[in-house]
Design a binder for these strands. Structure first.
Lengths: 208, 208
DNA sequence: CATTTGATTGACTGACCAGTCAATCTATCC
DNA sequence: GGATAGATTGACTGGTCAGTCAATCAAATG
């Protein structure tokens, strides 16, 4: 019953997580204080420790929540019976849309976890690796169908594809690339076009 | 005269910088203490502050030293009269060789600066941007010659190329990709092959 | 209304560590 | 040898901040 009532019981845990995203994005995980998160959430300092055992665990929770959704999505795409280009398109689209919908969240995940080889990157290596592995699987299948060149290692191909997208997001995060509705759509197309273009056999079997 | 003598006057400043690379790579910039660097260099704590005004400045120096070399290299490649593929090949080669020669250094630069949107990434944005800008220039020229597709923004192309390489290095740094002499050579070829393959017009003007 | 359970508060503590500084050492020069 | 300048040492300080905890509050139950 309490779960159906929206207003009456404010979800403090959620408020803390949402505030943490904003604070981490603005100041960075290391530079911010726990009190900054509590203030941003409009909550007392100690309450954070009622819901989370440590500052680290707040970030871990954020990452796991979001990364889990992405893994599920890639897994779903992988099993579908569609051309590689569409699979890659769906993945690129999902990541770009994630950024469009919540740039702070993506900034935190990329800057504080995905690219932090020390600290959190190490902790979540398994999860991160899983994403690369699945993209690699998609490439291998496409090679089996004769759509992608067989001479390029699936692992390198996966890294190239994922790296290209993440770099574009990083460009937006750093303010090095112009961003907006139009750029988001173009980015999806360009990355897929470039990487698939480079991976496909020059005279692909007609899939029409 | 003192500069010609090699043994007699050990260069403590250099020793500190070299030690810092190892310590930053092992523990990360934030996680390590200044005393760790001093210990690693076999030098007293205070001496670090004789040569550098702060811990931050040690990292800044390391980054600027190395990144400067890379900018110079890209600039030189840009002005040469060779096909784009060779230009991209030279850049990929330089970065991979840098990693092969000093993986700790590259780890520090990538993890602590290039990908740290807060803290140091912010400080050196100008330098980082300069690299992307020059790669973009190379793409634009290739488009002008009709070798690269005109419909893909040079900025996206530059990000895709640089992102792909950095991601492969990250794979090595994280231990997600096997590394060794053979892998280094293959990586150079694959990234260039994939990205150029995707960027080139399907029936390029014969440049022979 | 009394009681219990969980939510909420914020002042406090203990550890940690960047940066300082006065003292000591070494080289050089006259 | 005496004096000057720079290199080197490491104990110490001051500030910062994650995490603790005892106290207070609110809701639910009988």
């Amino acid at each position: 019953m309490s779960s159906t009532r929206a207003k009456s019981v404010p979800d403090r845990r959620r408020a803390i997580l949402d505030a943490a995203v904003r604070v981490f994005a603005r100041q960075g995980f290391h530079a911010c204080r726990v009190s900054d998160i509590a203030d941003e959430a409009g909550v007392a300092y100690g309450l954070l420790y009622h819901y989370f055992p440590s500052k680290d665990e707040v970030l871990n929770t954020l990452f796991l929540e979001r990364w889990g959704v992405m893994l599920e999505m890639i897994r779903a795409v992988d099993t579908e019976q569609i051309p590689v280009r569409e699979k890659f398109g769906a993945i690129a689209s999902f990541i770009v849309e994630s950024y469009r919908h919540d740039p702070d969240m993506m900034k935190v995940i990329i800057v504080e976890v995905t690219r932090a080889a020390n600290s959190f990157g190490q902790t979540h290596l398994g999860q991160i690796r899983e994403a690369y592995r699945m993209i690699g699987t998609i490439v291998t299948k496409a090679q089996g169908e004769g759509v992608f060149k067989a001479e390029i290692d699936a692992e390198f191909a996966a890294m190239t594809f994922y790296g290209a997208i993440e770099q574009v997001l990083t460009g937006w995060i750093f303010g090095l690339l112009p961003q907006g509705e139009e750029e988001f759509e173009r980015a999806k197309q360009m990355v897929v076009e470039t990487v698939c273009g480079g991976l496909e056999c020059r005279s692909p079997r007609s899939t029409t």
